[in-house]
């Protein structure tokens, strides 16, 4: 009986590894297909790229579920697993956006970015999960981390959309033709999508900060007090202020259009890169949903 269990376990591990690298390959292929689309404008390629990304998404979801079963808890710990969840959510949001035919050319901005993330995920592939204290396995933490990832995914897609906005606006100003910008949706639509993404991400992020505070306060015996000044917490607060500011100036009409799109892109990208750097260098009081250092 034990031998059978070992064999099943090995088979599952093998299938998980296969799904993981299959997903990465699917994301890379989808990016290649979409880059060919940028060059020749054949719309059929967009639906192929979409299918490939959706396939990669399903495989990553299987990896996530499989690892959850393997370790008996939700696999948030470690950069590989974190990126996987992030990719799954990003792809989900993109697929939702692409339901409208007019939105499909935006994949030229989204899918190459996802392919780069998939490559990084491949380098830091999910390894064995470290044991976590029982305080870290509660529902509060699960909701907290899931909302963080969701908000980040929304902000990430918003920053890529802002880049598409800038490209479109510049193309209209410079009167260039024959580029991907021509195939993008209208500026007004891009602006609407951009701030709808931030509009969904912002409350999710604010809520998760509150949940995180409640969880950390409840677990202060385990975590200690150092997390208050963790670079991640500081960045999170900065993000809340920045997105509130960008909403405010847009609503008041103080800043609109390309300049605001540039601001969203650069600040979101800088924050994301810093966040990734913190995760890579393991700076701070704790790692994402994992064991406190």
């Amino acid at each position: 009986m034990d031998a059978v269990c070992v064999q099943v376990y090995m088979l599952m591990a093998w299938l998980t590894t296969l799904s993981f690298y299959g997903a990465i390959a699917a994301y890379i292929f989808s990016a290649v297909v979409v880059l060919v689309y940028v060059r020749n404008g054949n719309n059929d390629l967009l639906s192929r790229a979409k299918k490939l990304a959706a396939f990669g998404n399903v495989l990553l979801l299987l990896v996530f579920i499989s690892r959850g079963i393997e370790f008996g808890r939700i696999p948030f710990t470690g950069l590989g697993d974190s990126l996987n969840l992030f990719l799954v959510l990003c792809t989900g949001i993109i697929l939702l956006l692409q339901r409208e035919e007019k939105m499909r050319p935006l994949m030229a901005y989204y899918l190459p970015a996802l392919a780069i993330l998939a490559l990084i995920s491949g380098i830091f592939s999910p390894s064995s999960l470290s044991e976590a204290p029982k305080e870290l396995n509660g529902l509060l933490l699960f909701v907290h981390v899931l909302l963080v990832f969701l908000a980040f995914a929304l902000f990430f897609i918003a920053s890529l959309t802002s880049m598409a906005y800038v490209t479109k606006a510049q193309s209209l100003k410079r009167m260039t033709s024959g580029t991907i910008a021509e195939r993008l949706p209208s500026l007004e639509r891009l602006d609407k999508v951009l701030f709808r993404l931030i509009g969904f991400g912002y409350p999710a992020f604010a809520l998760t900060l509150a949940l995180g505070f409640a969880w950390a306060y409840g677990s202060r015996d385990t975590l200690g007090e150092t997390w208050y000044f963790s670079p991640r917490i500081v960045l999170a607060l900065f993000m809340v202020i920045f997105y509130a500011f960008s909403f405010h100036i847009r609503r008041r009409g103080l800043l609109r259009g390309p300049k605001l799109a540039y601001l969203v892109f650069f600040v979101s990208t800088a924050l994301f890169v810093m966040y990734l750097g913190i995760e890579l260098m393991q700076i701070g009081g704790y790692t994402m949903g994992g064991t406190p250092s």
């Binding site: 479109k168 209209l172 021509e182 949706p185 209208s186 500026l187 007004e188 639509r189 609407k192």
Partner: peptide, 8 residues
Amino acid sequence: LAVSIFMD
């Protein structure tokens, strides 16, 4: 061009 700028 108008359609490229405005959604509706």
